[in-house]
């Protein structure tokens, strides 16, 4: 057999197409946000004249100072800093509360012989069916009658009243080999020790994944905070967005730079978390299946 000429490496047409489509998709996602960034770097007067452009200006620091420290609204207590703090309180409070309650409940359901376990199970998991949005008004009335308007409890606790985390941890606990309980009991560990020494360390990745998902979910809440917080010092960044837009509408020289930067700040923390902890986040999202 004679050695034939070495064939040249071919560049596949389909591979080129794949890259083109993916690049277009990435641009579709990215360009609007880049525009927001650009708008927060140029003087407001330039925006009013010619809108977004490719020009990156030097107003970022000025706008940052305005966005973070200059008060707005009627009460004058609504600075970027206070909104940022509220956003973190909501995001972290919601995530932590949900994870702790969820793990406790899931542990009780999976590892104990309970007479009313089935009932508790259904009572908890029915909450998966109805999002907060469909019972928003009565929830508001109840929070109001409990005197929790404009409080962090009123903001966070009703959002926790669903079983996503419980369901997620239940699935995970069920996948933990049951020999572990037997082994732990033989080693003399009671239920509390087993939970703290074995189950919690085993769940570390799951907890991290849940935390990311729940933090983003809490941070991005809009409807509930809109209803429950009427005092401006309770606003979160996301809650404050509408106010920014309404200010654009009313004034002669809208503070576009400041507004865009606030929108950017409202986006950066959750985006960074999702991007940096991507693998945990994706795992948590696709394995929880709801």
């Amino acid at each position: 057999m004679t050695a034939t000429q070495k064939p040249r490496k071919r560049i596949r047409f389909s591979t080129v197409m794949d890259h083109i489509v993916l690049t277009l998709g990435a641009l579709f996602m990215l360009v609007p946000m880049l525009m927001v960034f650009q708008l927060s770097t140029v003087p407001d007067a330039e925006i009013i004249q010619r809108g977004p452009s490719l020009n990156i200006g030097d107003q970022l620091d000025d706008n940052f100072v305005k966005a973070m420290f200059e008060a707005s609204g009627f009460s004058g207590e609504n600075t970027g800093v206070s909104m940022l703090i509220n956003s973190f309180i909501l995001g972290i409070g919601f995530a932590v509360g949900k994870i702790i309650l969820g793990m406790m409940a899931a542990y009780a359901i999976v590892y104990f012989r309970l007479r009313f376990a089935t009932l508790a199970f259904w009572a908890i998991f029915t909450t998966l069916l109805l999002p907060l949005e469909v019972r928003i008004l009565p929830s508001y009335e109840i929070v109001q009658s409990l005197g929790m308007l404009n409080t962090y409890q009123g903001l966070i606790i009703p959002l926790i009243a669903s079983a996503t985390a419980t369901f997620f941890f239940r699935q995970f606990f069920l996948s933990v080999p049951e020999e572990l309980v037997a082994a732990a009991r033989i080693d003399g560990a009671g239920p509390v020790k087993f939970f703290i020494d074995i189950l919690v360390p085993l769940s570390r990745t799951m907890i991290a994944a849940m935390f990311i998902i729940m933090f983003v979910y809490g941070w991005n809440q809009y409807l509930w905070p809109t209803m429950i917080t009427t005092e401006e010092d309770m606003y979160t960044l996301v809650r404050g967005i509408k106010q920014i837009i309404q200010v654009f509408e009313g004034t002669n020289l809208p503070e576009y730079g400041r507004g865009n930067l606030l929108a950017l700040i409202a986006v950066i923390p959750p985006v960074l978390i999702v991007v940096f902890f991507q693998s945990w986040f994706v795992k948590g999202l696709t394995e929880s299946d709801k």
Binding site: M33, N220, I241, K242, A266, V267, P270, V271, V274
Partner: peptide, 10 residues
Amino acid sequence: MWVYAVAPPV
């Protein structure tokens, strides 16, 4: 995927 983390009102 990063847009997942952007709030709807934003």
